[in-house]
Design a protein around this nucleic acid. Structure first.
Length: 823
RNA sequence: GCCCGGGUGGCGGAAUUGGUAGACGCUGCGGACUUAAAAUCCGCUGUCCGUGAGGACGUGCGGGUUCGAGUCCCGCCCCGGGCACCA
């Protein structure tokens, strides 16, 4: 073999070997243990960025490790190919979105191959192709038939100058990114999916996912936000029957704290609430205020962080138990989309209500006292703990639960309340007023209303040869697309021009990989073979939306009989971002690193090794050019060690250790096998696994091989290093494995096993502490008795100095580790 | 604003169940080899005191629990992710 490591000479050849031998093409064979390893598929933005390289490498390492565990591993790849960037590129460069997308895919696929990623490319899925999206159109029509989709008015960001809907990302400091105009919230009709029908199951099944990180499950629980409370009806003084039609003529509010009902001193409604609009009709100041309220993006973060403002409507509600008038205000922090768009404000016992009441000098009433001796002073702050009711008439002196029940019963007896489970989770709005997406398969007929496109007419193909101008959807300007006949009555009708949210495509692609070439159904039997995904890997930024939608889709597919699994992903690994200079790598920051340049300079193995060594996968990774060079140095050192070893001679056969250096190297070899197996197989801490192999190689370097036995022990150590590294750096280890005298490929080898006999130690180092501070280290027999350990510790001169003539009060011995003398 | 993370040497990080803080790598400094450079190898590298042995301090800040806290508890500060139309 060559004595120098030249990755450019070996990597293309190894990749060709995998291709020629179809190493990563897997079918549904029996009597094997299938393992489905999946990476979140990328958006084809142009070139791979370092975040891609990181997640793709992590997945490839897992897939190759599982293969060495004897699993029948599927690792597919595809493209989340619809989305806004393609439209932006089209506006900027005049390239049709389809052409731009397909050429990006070609380029990025080549980069993935150059990284040595082991995919079954036969199964490639591209979401902008009709053979993919036809099935989600079909799926949508099935859900329509089941009543799981519906159309309603919903808020969007409206740019009044460009006359177009903007994504939250396109609103910068409250203004449209192109026009600079102040953005307003506007309501338009949109399609929704009833994810709230599945809220309870989505919540409960989180407990069936031990392989998911706890923070992700907590975020999803909080996002679903189940709360048990009471819907309370407040009569409104005056005739507002038509404004309150949706809530049976009353102002209906949801609260989780009915025990504080007597402390409600005002009501607050959203700016979009019909009562506010009615009041504004005869009050120009109020109308102006509502207009200002609407002048913000629809993003919750914007609404929640702006200054809390309000105005009285001049309308009173009537307290359902006291009969007192309660003024109704409009407030800019009340969300029309949560609950009923109205709330009862209890400033004494809610932080936000307290601040609002203080600002507008509204009354603050204490109706809860502490259950212990804590002093409650609602003049200085809201008291939000659950306690005992006061100032609540006949309901005084009750605990939270008792007051909740008593007040609920009293109201329900008068038909003024209903026990209600409320969710923070809202139904999923899937309509987008954009071109580059899946056409929503609906036809509008003046007589028949919204009619789903019949299966025989699917797919509704998105025209790809278009000019995108940036104002409005090009589909609206294409009569040949819009004009059609009603599938029900045959009269002229109009086709829906909105497209699906791109989360729609990414909510089921994991299943389609199994049935990638099925052209008569969305999924077939093969989905049952592979699903659920054993290991799913992707960015933490997807912890809520994508992962919740995919879980929802899996349940929908199950309920339509397409799949058997309740949950799509058994184990989840969320990887952190790649940073440079402490900031996210991005074009706008101007701090990107091109993976291709690195592959050209150092080879794919170095890039992979650096990515895996520099940080554990869940943490953010700080980029370092010096670190890449260090990774390359390590591979060069590994190569040189093997080259020098085989130069002496390949030494197959049992590695017998008789001398102390032989025993030490064998012990190190097997300690490292144990450590790396745990790090890769259980902990997914690839950084510490690599550190372990580095330690092993340091031991090999320090080992002088003179005898034939020495040579065998060194052979074992080097083979171990090569096998343990092979999932991470598959090209160099492919070459080195053959150099070490093997004909078969390293990727088909079994993961090495620990020889427990090699781990034996005669003595163990104990740490001696006096009052918890380290004072000595002692080498003692592994089976030393407690008394012997204590005696040896006391005999140490440094320990004696710190014990002195003080009495020993206590001795704590941690077996095989530590002894602490408390004086 | 709300939900979820994170903060350890000059740097990335390690410390897996409350038990030796700083593994491994990078950087830097010193040395070997070389005509020279590259490459490679060896030594040192948390701060302070000390020739040394060793000692004091030290894991964002302030308190607490414990024989013992980077790790657990309470209160803060700062940074990152998400907030439903970026993907």
């Amino acid at each position: 073999m060559k004595d120098q490591y030249h990755p450019a000479d070996i990597e293309p050849g190894v990749q060709q070997y995998w291709k020629d031998h179809r190493c990563f093409e897997v079918d549904e064979v029996e009597d094997v243990d299938p393992y489905y390893c999946l990476t979140m598929f990328p958006y084809p933005s142009g070139k791979l960025h370092m975040g891609h390289v990181r997640v793709l490498t992590i997945s490839d390492v897992v897939a190759r490790y599982q293969r060495m565990q004897g699993k029948h591993v599927l690792q597919p790849m595809g493209w989340d190919a619809f989305g806004m960037p393609a439209e932006n590129a089209a506006i900027k460069h005049g390239v049709p979105p389809a052409e731009w997308t397909y050429s990006n895919i070609e380029y990025m696929r080549g980069q993935m191959d150059a990284l040595g990623l082991g995919y079954d490319w036969r199964r490639e899925v591209t979401t902008c192709r009709p053979d993919y999206y036809r099935w989600e159109q079909w799926f949508f029509t099935k859900l329509f038939e089941k009543g799981l989709v519906y159309r309603k008015q919903s808020v969007v960001n409206w740019d009044p100058v460009d006359n177009t809907v903007l994504a939250n990302e396109q609103v910068i400091d409250g203004r449209g990114w192109r026009s600079g105009a102040l953005v307003e919230r506007r309501e338009i009709p949109q399609w929704f999916m009833k994810i709230t029908d599945y809220a309870d199951e989505l919540l409960a099944d989180l407990d069936k996912l031990p392989g998911w990180p706890d923070p992700v499950k907590t975020m999803q629980r909080n996002w679903i936000g189940r709360s048990e409370g009471l819907e309370i009806d407040f009569e409104v003084d005056g005739d507002y029957a038509s404004e309150l039609e949706a809530t049976d003529g009353v102002l209906r509010v949801f609260t989780t704290r009915p025990d504080t009902l007597f402390g409600a001193t005002y009501m607050a409604v959203a700016a979009e609430h019909p009562l506010a609009e009615r009041a504004a009709a005869s009050d120009p100041k109020l109308a102006e205020f509502l207009r200002e309220c609407r002048q913000t993006s629809a993003a919750e973060a914007d609404i929640e962080t702006r200054e809390k403002l309000g105005m009285p409507l001049g309308i009173n509600a009537i307290h359902p138990l006291t009969g007192d008038p309660v003024p109704i205000w409009v407030a800019n922090f009340v969300l029309m989309t949560y609950g009923t768009g109205a709330l009862m404000a209890v400033p004494g016992h809610d932080v936000r209500d307290w601040e609002f009441a203080t600002k507008y000098e509204l009354p603050i009433r204490q109706v809860i006292n502490s259950a212990d001796d804590t002093v409650v002073d609602i003049e200085s702050a809201a008291y939000v703990e659950k306690g005992v009711t006061v100032n609540s008439g006949e309901f005084d002196g009750l605990s939270f639960k008792a007051a909740f029940d008593a007040i609920a019963d009293a109201l329900m007896a008068q038909n003024k309340a209903t026990r209600k489970v409320n969710y923070r989770l809202r139904d999923w709005g899937v309509s987008r007023q954009r071109y580059w997406g899946t056409p929503i398969p609906i036809i509008y007929c003046d007589d028949c209303g919204a009619v789903p496109v019949p299966e025989a007419d699917l797919p509704v193909v998105l025209p790809e040869d278009v000019v995108v101008s940036g104002t409005g959807s090009p589909l609206k300007d294409m009569p040949e697309f819009v004009h059609c006949d009603c599938p029900k009555c045959g009269k002229p009708a109009r086709r829906e021009t909105d497209t699906f949210d791109t989360f729609f495509e990414s909510s089921w692609y994991f299943a389609r990989y199994a049935s990638y070439d099925c052209d008569d159904a969305m999924l077939d039997e093969r989905a049952k073979y592979w699903l659920p995904v054993d290991q799913y890997i992707g960015g933490i930024e997807h912890a809520i939306l994508h992962l919740l939608y995919a879980r929802f889709f899996q349940k929908l597919m199950r309920d339509l009989g397409l799949s058997h699994a309740d949950e799509p992903f058994t184990n989840l690994l969320t990887q952190g971002m790649v940073l440079k200079g402490g900031r996210k790598m991005s074009k706008s920051e101007g701090n990107t690193v091109d993976p291709q340049a690195l592959i050209d300079e150092y080879g794919a193995d170095t890039v992979r090794l650096f990515m895996m060594f520099t940080a554990p996968p869940e943490q953010a990774l700080e980029w370092s050019d010096d670190g890449v060079a260090g990774a390359f140095r390590f591979l060069r050192k590994l190569w040189r060690n093997v080259a020098e070893h085989v130069d002496v001679g390949v030494a197959h056969g049992e590695a017998r250790a008789t001398t102390d250096p032989q025993k030490a190297l064998r012990r190190k070899t097997h300690e490292i096998i144990a450590k790396v197996s745990d790090d890769v197989g259980r902990r997914y801490t690839f950084n510490t696994a690599i550190a372990g192999v580095m330690e092993l190689l340091n031991s090999v370097t320090a080992f002088a091989a003179e005898t034939e036995d020495d040579q065998r022990v060194r052979q074992e150590a080097l083979e171990t290093a090569v096998l343990l590294l092979s999932p991470i750096t598959p090209h160099i280890t492919h070459e080195l494995w053959q150099a070490l005298g093997h004909d078969d490929a390293v990727l088909n080898q079994a993961w090495p096993a620990v020889d427990t006999a090699a781990l034996q130690r005669d003595s163990i180092e104990f740490v001696v502490q006096v009052n918890g501070k380290l004072r000595a280290r002692l080498s003692l027999a592994a089976d030393a008795s407690r008394e012997a350990i204590e005696a040896a510790a006391l005999a140490d001169p440094n320990v004696q100095q710190f014990v002195g003539d003080k009495a020993i009060r206590k001795v704590i011995v941690v077996p095989k580790k530590l002894v602490n003398l408390v004086v």
